[in-house]
Every structure is written in structure tokens, then in C-alpha cells.
């Protein structure tokens, strides 16, 4: 129900530097597939093109070359089949947390009691039931981020695109939400493309890790971590965790893995 395929995607940006236009290539011929129900992590250093890739998949940006297919259909603009969690939450400042979640739902045509109930349910899910009536400036950075997650989850998209959703959180809350995300994923089988620069996060959550460096796909690493019935601490003790973590580390640093 939700497959995402990047097919030879490149992206150039025109930047004006000292009055002269320069071309910047943010993505270089990227191809990979997120299979239905998979969690795929996009990892790489700052500025390597992670956000750009996600925005193209969302339809907020168009590819300069190549295309992104969602369920075999080429992405041309935004759709309810995809939900995005922005890197900086991007809540509407004049709406309360609850109204922010409701905004997405209303755009899907939901009205009346179901609207409020659904919004409450997802705020509850991210642990913000008590802050439903607060406006964004009355929330901490991490709380804002969680409202953003609730807003994207609430519209029940087939594909969830998440841009460093846990970046602004403390490690404890992050662990909790990692657990939540795995639960949600187990419960709904959603396809998730997750941008991160956190090695552990990528290995713990993803079935496949795409390592980007300077806009190019450096390596694709499959993760065969056994997650059934285990909590995050137990997952870390598996030999597979350490091995994959090391491979991703080498890929990130451009050093040979020895495998």
C-alpha cells in the first residue's frame, strides 16, 4: 500500500553568491526503494541532501532529473497518501496544539466530533494530552516536534516522511518515541522514510539504511535486527546491532569496512 522509489533523482539549486548565480548540486543520481511497510533511514552529515530528498518525495520540491514514484505513480505535488514531519516542526503559531493536529485532518475532509476525538487520540499518543490547549510558543522544542509528529500521523498517510523528528528531543523522550514509532509501525504497517544523523536511531529503527555523502548515495545497508518482543535496550545488545552500527559508521566516514 505504500512503496516509495527514487529513480535517478538529481537536484540542482541556483544560489546567488556575491551577485553571481552558481549551481549547487544537492542530490546526485539517487536511486533506492522503500518497500511497502519498511522503515528506511536516510543518514548523512549536515548538508548532504537529506531534507532535499524528503521534500522531493513529498512534492514540495521538484527533481531536476529523475523522479520519485509512490506506489508506482510519479510524485507531482503533495497528496494525502504522504504525511511529512518537518525538521523544525512548523506549527501554525495562532493555533493550539490540538487545532494544529486538527488542521491536517480538516484538509482531509474530517468534521465534527470525529475530528476532535482523532486529534486528541494522536496528541495522547505522543504524550501531549495535557497540552492540547497550548499554543506553540508555550511548548518546548521537543513538544512542538511531537505535535508535528501527531499532525502527520493523524491523517493516516500510507507513507510517513520524517525529517529528523527526534533531533530536538532529550535522550529519554527520544527513546520513548522510538518505542512509540516501532509500536505504531508494528500496528499499522506504515511505510516510513526517516531522515536522521543519529547512528543508533538509524540502526534501531530501520530495516534499511541509505548513507548519503555530499548528495551522492554512498551505500545501502540492510539491517536484520530482531525486534519482535524486544525493547530498545535489548536490541542494542544484539551482535547485529554492533555490526551494522560499525558498517554505517565506516560508510559515513568513507573508510573501508573490512567485510
Amino acid at each position: 500500500m505504500g512503496q516509495v522509489a527514487f529513480a535517478g533523482v538529481s537536484k540542482w539549486f541556483g544560489v546567488r553568491v556575491d551577485g553571481r548565480m552558481q549551481g549547487v548540486q544537492a542530490l546526485k543520481d539517487i536511486s533506492f526503494t522503500v518497500e511497502n511497510g519498511q522503515i528506511v533511514a536516510l543518514i548523512g552529515p549536515s548538508g548532504c541532501g537529506k531534507t532535499t530528498a524528503l521534500r522531493i518525495a513529498m512534492g514540495l520540491e521538484s527533481a531536476s532529473a529523475g523522479r520519485v514514484l509512490v506506489n508506482g505513480r510519479e510524485v507531482r505535488g503533495c497528496g494525502h497518501d504522504r504525511g511529512i514531519v518537518f525538521q523544525h516542526a512548523e506549527l501554525l503559531p495562532w493555533l493550539t496544539a490540538e487545532q494544529n493536529v486538527m488542521f491536517g485532518l480538516e484538509m482531509k475532509g474530517m468534521r465534527g466530533d470525529t475530528l476532535r476525538d482523532t486529534a486528541r487520540r494522536y496528541l495522547d499518543l505522543v504524550g501531549l494530552a495535557d497540552s492540547a490547549g497550548r499554543r506553540p510558543h508555550q511548548l518546548s522544542g521537543g513538544m512542538k516536534q511531537r505535535v508535528g509528529i501527531a499532525r502527520a500521523l493523524a491523517i493516516d498517510p500510507e507513507v510517513l516522511l520524517m525529517d529528523e523528528p527526534f533531533g530536538a528531543l532529550d535522550s529519554q523522550t527520544r527513546e520513548t518515541l522510538h518505542g512509540e514509532l516501532l509500536d505504531i509501525h508494528a500496528g499499522t504497517g506504515k511505510t516510513i522514510l526517516l531522515v536522521t544523523h543519529d547512528l543508533d536511531e538509524a540502526v534501531l529503527l530501520a530495516d534499511k539504511i541509505i548513507v548519503l555523502r555530499a548528495g551522492a548515495l554512498q551505500q545501502t545497508i540492510n539491517v536484520n535486527l530482531d525486534r519482535t518482543g524486544l525493547d530498545l535496550a535489548e536490541m542494542r545488545t544484539q551482535p547485529e546491532f554492533a555490526q551494522v552500527r560499525l558498517r554505517v559508521w565506516h560508510a559515513l566516514h568513507g573508510t573501508p569496512t573490512g567485510h
Binding site: M58, G59, L60, G77, C78, G79, H80, R82, G83, I84, F86, H88, E90, L91, L92, W94, F103, G104, M107, K108, I155
Partner: peptide
């Protein structure tokens, strides 16, 4: 970025005007 919130939830133009641009 706020306009993109509207776009990503597929808000029609008049809704973006009334519920994002106007406030």
C-alpha cells in the same frame, strides 16, 4: 515554511489564504 504546511496537507488556495496567510 508555513505555506508549505498548507501545501503538504493539500489545502486548497482559498484555505491557505484564509487559514494561513490571513492570520
Amino acid at each position: 515554511s508555513l505555506l508549505e504546511v498548507g501545501r503538504s496537507f493539500v489545502a486548497p488556495g482559498h484555505v491557505i489564504m484564509r487559514r494561513i496567510i490571513f492570520p
